[in-house]
């Protein structure tokens, strides 16, 4: 009932072009500002983290998703609800580790890399690294320390883009967020 009444807070959809182009301009700028690709990767991850810790609030307010009881449930929510909501795509989930603490998100088309080609001089640049930061930051706010990293990238000639997610530990309530 109250969900229905909440129409006003429903967010607007835009074409992803503006987002994609803006992101591209940002990466270009960072490549100018920093000398090594590693620094750019780090910076993108940090910015993503800052976005993630804020984005989670927007997500929880709009998605009606409760606390996840295990990592599998988390994976489902990320792929089927969150990615769909924010980027309009639904990655598939594969390659579960036997312990159930690692999985892969397979993105067949990554909206961030439309119109992008990596020059040879930037072979170690992880172009969409912002996404890893977003995932890490958002999950940290729901008491999950994870590691997210790209292991395959269509920009580097792979068939698909793959983000490997690894559950590190559950963050206890009394620890300040972000403590290692």
């Amino acid at each position: 009932m109250s969900r229905q009444a909440n129409r006003g807070t429903e967010s607007k959809k835009m074409s992803s072009e503006l987002f994609t182009l803006t992101y591209g301009a940002l990466v270009t700028q960072l490549c100018k500002d920093y000398e090594s690709d590693e620094d750019v990767n780090k910076q993108l991850d940090r910015m993503g983290y800052n976005i993630g810790v804020r984005l989670i609030e927007d997500f929880l307010a709009r998605s009606n998703v409760g606390r996840c009881h295990d990592f599998r449930e988390t994976a489902d929510v990320i792929a089927k609800v969150a990615f769909k909501m924010y980027l309009g795509i639904t990655p598939s989930i594969t390659n579960w580790s036997p312990a159930g603490d690692e999985f892969s998100l397979i993105l067949e088309n990554n909206p961030l890399v439309d119109f992008v080609e990596l020059p040879d001089s930037h072979s170690s640049l992880i172009y969409s690294n912002l996404l890893c930061g977003v995932l890490r930051g958002a999950l940290e706010m729901v008491q999950m320390a994870v590691e997210a990293k790209f292991v395959q990238d269509t920009l580097k000639g792979d068939g698909v883009t793959e983000i490997r997610m690894r559950f590190l530990r559950r963050i206890e309530d009394n620890l300040p967020a972000g403590e290692e």
């Binding site: 835009m14 992101y23 910015m47 804020r54």
Partner: peptide
């Protein structure tokens, strides 16, 4: 389709990152 919130947050981060004078850490 991307969500407008995403652009807004990205824009905020860009401002935070690129506005700081002599951002060169």
């Amino acid at each position: 389709m991307a969500d407008a919130v995403l652009f807004e947050f990205l824009h905020t981060e860009m401002v935070a990152e690129l506005w700081a004078p002599d951002a060169d850490p």
